[in-house]
Design a protein around this nucleic acid. Structure first.
Length: 150
DNA sequence: GCCAACGTTGGC
DNA sequence: GCCAACGTTGGC
């Protein structure tokens, strides 16, 4: 059992969208490191911090869990999609996604508040220059964050 | 809209 | 395999 932080732009998929849909495919990842996390390291039931990025109030907005293991991201084959990848074919798909299931909405734990917590200083997502849309979260960090969210 | 940081591309 | 140029992310 591992833990992850996954960034989503709320204009695209917010925690409220996830709540109403129940489950979403995590489409659109176009970074190899993030893809490899999904493909190689995620397991069913892994804990997910649902993070709102590129928005007025960036931060953790809720909890989710991995509900389906990696499979090809359909948007890579769709010429109409902004995530279309002409170098990808159904035979040799380049990009993968997992499905993520809603667990619960939380208060917004802002990026600013996270930065002020000494115990969270080591979090991958807080490291200088980090741009990965999926990062791993240690068990201790997960526990600390859950305590902050209650 | 700016821009720092980083990933990817492609010429050599 | 190097590395400059370019593109993207994402906070501010």
């Amino acid at each position: 059992m591992r833990y992850w932080l996954m960034k989503s732009e709320p204009d695209d998929v917010s925690i409220d969208d996830l709540a109403s849909m129940g489950e979403v495919g995590w489409y659109g990842v176009r970074n190899y490191q993030a893809r490899n996390f999904m493909r190689d390291a995620m397991a069913l039931g892994d804990g997910v911090l649902f993070y709102h990025s590129s928005c007025p109030q960036p931060g953790v907005a809720g909890l989710a869990e991995v509900s389906r293991l990696a499979y090809p991201d359909p948007t890579q084959f769709d010429p109409e999609s902004r995530y279309f990848d002409p170098k990808s074919t159904p035979d040799q798909p380049r990009w993968q996604q997992v499905d993520v299931r809603f667990v619960r909405k939380t208060r917004l734990l802002s990026l600013d508040e996270m930065r002020r917590m000494p115990t969270l200083a080591g979090m991958q997502v807080l490291q200088r220059g980090n741009r990965l849309s999926i990062t791993s979260v240690s068990e201790a960090e997960w526990r600390d964050i859950l305590a902050l969210l209650d």
